[in-house]
């Protein structure tokens, strides 16, 4: 792409107001998170906090018990990410590169799950988890989240593998490798971008997942970050200063993760998702 580019600044000037509008809510959130409850209650969205209430962050951390929540969330994300990869990569490979009767239909059966919102099946899902003794266990949440993410993960991996030339696997087969070996030695090393896209997308949705942990994780010691935010809201009143600062706390690790990996993520989407 060596085309001569026009000057950049007119477009930047055009984008700045858009930038302000799109990121405005963040500015509002961070400002509000540094106000006292009474200042928030005064309801002037443009007023600055009189005094920066960093205390809100300490309070949210302590009252919400964020220390253990963050640990649980990390375990949750790690479990889902690893398992998603272990489950989706081989299946994606099978659906892309192995020929068998009913391949198309198997794929569609998986894709079907993409269209079912979890809220619609939560009660029977709870029953299944209950019968397996998985209520109030992180394992239960992880398994259900992985299952819920299978359609998309499989879709992504299959799309990527479809784009890998068959000659590569042919060569490996002639060398006597079986499918599992081809997958781990040839395909996986090639698919870093797709894998990182899959990892980031599943990490993100797990980190932010509220509904399933709400129903499954009962003991405070087992809960994840989004459930901590619930602790600041009671039937008749909400501690907004804690909700806002807690939200920022929840949000920071994700932003950092994203900024660190954004180049890979975009590449992964480019090469992974787009071949569907």
């Amino acid at each position: 792409m060596s085309r001569r580019k026009p000057a950049e600044w007119p477009m930047v000037a055009l984008l700045l107001p858009v930038f302000a509008i799109i990121l405005g809510p963040f500015l509002w959130l961070v400002t509000s998170s540094l106000k006292t409850e009474a200042e928030i209650g005064r309801g002037d969205p443009f007023a600055l906090p009189k005094q920066l209430m960093w205390q809100n962050y300490a309070d949210a951390w302590n009252i919400g018990g964020f220390g253990s929540l963050i640990g649980n969330s990390l375990i949750n994300v790690a479990g889902v990410v690893v398992l998603t990869l272990i489950v989706c990569a081989p299946a994606g490979y099978a659906l892309a590169k192995i020929r068998f009767a009913g391949r198309e239909w198997t794929f569609y059966a998986f894709i079907f799950g993409l269209t079912i919102p979890i809220q619609a099946i939560i009660i029977p899902l709870y029953q299944v988890l209950f019968n397996l003794g998985l209520i109030n266990s992180m394992a239960g949440v992880v398994l259900a989240q992985v299952a819920n993410g299978i359609p998309f993960g499989l879709f992504l991996m299959r799309s990527f593998f479809l784009g890998v030339p068959n000659e590569l696997s042919e060569a490996a087969r002639i060398d006597g490798a079986n499918h599992f070996q081809i997958l781990t030695r040839v395909f996986l090393p090639l698919s870093q971008p797709a894998i990182s896209a899959l990892l980031i997308i599943s990490a993100l949705s797990t980190w932010n997942d509220f509904f399933l942990p709400l129903v499954v994780l009962i003991s405070p010691g087992n809960q994840t970050l989004p459930l901590g935010l619930v602790r600041f809201a009671s039937t008749y009143s909400t501690d907004f200063r804690l909700v806002f600062s807690g939200t920022v706390i929840t949000f920071l690790p994700v932003i950092i993760l994203y900024i660190l990996t954004q180049r890979r993520f975009t590449e992964g989407l480019t090469q992974g998702a787009l071949k569907g």
Binding site: P90, A94, I116, P124, L125, Q127, N178
Partner: peptide, 23 residues
């Protein structure tokens, strides 16, 4: 071969997605 590679996905998906749908 395909079935073996898909087995984890099929098992999880059947248990936690298809069963609730059938229920």
């Amino acid at each position: 071969a395909a079935f073996v590679l898909m087995l984890p996905a099929i098992a999880l998906y059947a248990l936690f997605s298809l069963t609730p749908i059938l229920l």
